[in-house]
Design a protein around this nucleic acid. Structure first.
Lengths: 214, 214
DNA sequence: TTATAAGGTCACCACTTGGTGACTTTTAAT
DNA sequence: ATTAAAAGTCACCAAGTGGTGACCTTATAA
């Protein structure tokens, strides 16, 4: 029998594979990566676990295939990159940081993946992180580095702290935490303060590091 | 028989209890909180798991007792608080941030606890976080808030991003990651850049938010 | 219609998990 | 020495884990 590609049957390998991949996503979002067990995944997919071994080889490979299949940073990176940069990328970076802050807070899967990537050594996660880093590298090299000249790495260090800080604050808010340095991150008011501080820090960095360069 | 308090025997309840608590610490540091299983803890302690139930009631209670017994932020918070503040706490905050950055990077247990606290809902972790937050509150209220006046919460938001960012960068470095925004966090050079950026941001914040206030 | 290959189910295995009852060993007061 | 209480060991259980062989089911090419 030839491999079924298009015909819609009740028994569809591709559909079943997708059900497993979806199940991985569902479990990851709701229970986190520690709940990604064969029995759990099979039950969530509503199919027999045997099929996981048949189609993916192992649970690990299924999970890796899930990771590779997702574009976790879609909204952040796929963002509008300005055609022309007149302010050294200040406005672009500001928007990027604020959008990332919002995007992460609304994207449970990305949150769990970020957490996962700092919790467990894993090739496919390292690749994910490295790829995202490479994406950022292109933007920085093309947009802000030229502006900061020999102070480029100083600006990058600042940016690293900002990106990392916004990541952590979002993760922190999800469990056990609400107030951080007295800011209530669960309220719109608190999050607004964080956004303002982000804008402020980008602004300051652009005016001051630029200053030093001249 | 009276409870043994001081006499040193081979069979010493307190010593055994401590062995279990130490085992929890060892496992946490080396394998992370997900490896904190009864059998694992008992094996590490070199004692029978039955004793865990006898002495602590359950594994959960043993773990909670470990968490409560530790002063994870000892070096950071127990730090020298200035008797007299003449610069609005700028120097104090700068030193605090830099010391925290170093301390976390060298303290595996604290790293794992930070990770744990943003991964799993848990009363004792929430208490830990809340207590640390309360410690910080005292310092901020006493040192920097008066300086920033009605802009105090703006300064706090900046500080939140910095503290969170330094946390995340340290956690990021431990697994899967090395470069972040192009900064190699595993090298002294990279970490130095982060320290400089931290100083820079505190400096900027003090000069600029102060400016606005006047 | 029938053969066949792939989709899918189920029972079962070995092993690990948390947890407990029955037991032995040690200690120290009598 | 006797004895009671606590320290500690061991075998065992039920439930859950990852993983597999034997089987049934369905679609379609011949």
């Amino acid at each position: 029998m030839e491999p079924n590609t298009i015909t819609s049957r009740g028994r569809d390998k591709n559909k079943s594979k997708q059900q497993f991949l979806d199940a991985v996503g569902t479990i990851l979002r709701t229970k986190g990566y520690t709940a990604l067990k064969v029995n759990n995944i099979a039950a969530t997919a509503g199919l027999d676990k045997k099929l996981i071994y048949k189609y993916f080889g192992s649970t690990e490979q299924l999970i890796d295939e899930y990771i590779h299949s997702q574009d976790f940073w879609s909204n952040v990176t796929g963002d509008l990159v300005p055609k022309e940069v007149t302010d050294g990328g200040k406005d672009f970076l500001k928007r990027m940081l604020l959008e990332q802050f919002e995007f992460v807070s609304q994207n449970k899967a990305l949150q769990k993946v970020l957490l996962w990537s700092i919790s467990e050594e894993r090739k496919s996660l390292k690749k994910l992180i490295d790829d995202q880093e490479a994406n950022g590298e292109v933007l920085l090299k093309g947009i802000s580095d030229p502006h900061f000249g020999d102070k480029a790495s100083d600006h990058r260090a600042v940016l690293a702290i900002l990106v990392a800080g916004l990541y952590y604050l979002n993760l922190f808010t999800e469990v056990n935490g609400s107030h951080f340095c007295g800011i209530d991150l669960k309220t719109e008011e608190g999050r607004s303060k964080i956004r303002q501080a982000t804008s402020f820090l980008v602004e300051q960095t652009y005016s001051s590091i630029q200053e030093k360069k001249q």
